[in-house]
Amino acid sequence: MPRNRKYRKVCAEFQHKVFVPEEKGRGYITLTVEELEAMRLCDFEGLDQEEAAVRMEISRGTLQRILYSARHKSAEALCEGKGVRIQGGTYEVAESCCCNYRCKKCKRGRDTASKEI
């Protein structure tokens, strides 16, 4: 019997869920929410994999597998001229984000700690 999947923590829901290339008709790739969150933390926020894994409450190995999958899909979309759809995955929005690190996603911790999304 397989193990229950562990929910991955994400800071906040992403506002933009579909990206379309100039030339339509080449199809779409689908990034899961946790794949985009892993890329956001490592590539956009500049965290190392250990820190990102702690934020998402998963092991570093799991984060690395998610990150490799996300980067492969992103490269495929860019090289093949495909659109990107953000949907699905096994995740939950964290009730208290670690935004004392000045998260670029939810902007909490920048001006005031009580600023809402």
Results as ranks from 00 to 15, higher is better:
residue 2 P to N: 09
residue 2 P to S: 13
residue 6 K to W: 00
residue 12 A to K: 13
residue 14 F to N: 02
residue 15 Q to E: 12
residue 17 K to I: 12
residue 18 V to Q: 07
residue 20 V to G: 02
residue 22 E to I: 13
residue 23 E to K: 14
residue 24 K to L: 11
residue 26 R to W: 11
residue 26 R to N: 15
residue 26 R to G: 11
residue 27 G to Y: 04
residue 31 L to Q: 07
residue 31 L to S: 04
residue 31 L to N: 01
residue 32 T to P: 00
residue 33 V to S: 00
residue 36 L to P: 01
residue 38 A to I: 12
residue 39 M to R: 07
residue 41 L to M: 14
residue 44 F to D: 07
residue 47 L to S: 06
residue 47 L to E: 08
residue 48 D to V: 11
residue 48 D to M: 09
residue 52 A to F: 13
residue 52 A to V: 05
residue 53 A to N: 06
residue 54 V to Y: 00
residue 54 V to L: 10
residue 57 E to P: 00
residue 60 R to L: 01
residue 60 R to M: 07
residue 60 R to I: 05
residue 61 G to R: 01
residue 62 T to Y: 02
residue 62 T to C: 02
residue 64 Q to V: 02
residue 67 L to D: 02
residue 67 L to H: 02
residue 68 Y to I: 14
residue 70 A to R: 02
residue 70 A to S: 04
residue 71 R to W: 08
residue 73 K to F: 10
residue 74 S to R: 05
residue 74 S to K: 07
residue 74 S to V: 14
residue 75 A to M: 10
residue 76 E to S: 11
residue 76 E to K: 14
residue 77 A to M: 07
residue 78 L to A: 15
residue 81 G to M: 13
residue 82 K to G: 06
residue 83 G to F: 10
residue 85 R to T: 13
residue 86 I to Q: 09
residue 87 Q to G: 12
residue 87 Q to D: 15
residue 88 G to H: 06
residue 88 G to R: 08
residue 89 G to M: 13
residue 90 T to W: 13
residue 96 S to D: 10
residue 99 C to Q: 00
residue 106 C to A: 11
residue 112 T to S: 11
residue 113 A to Q: 10
residue 113 A to G: 00
residue 114 S to A: 12
residue 115 K to D: 10
residue 117 I to T: 05
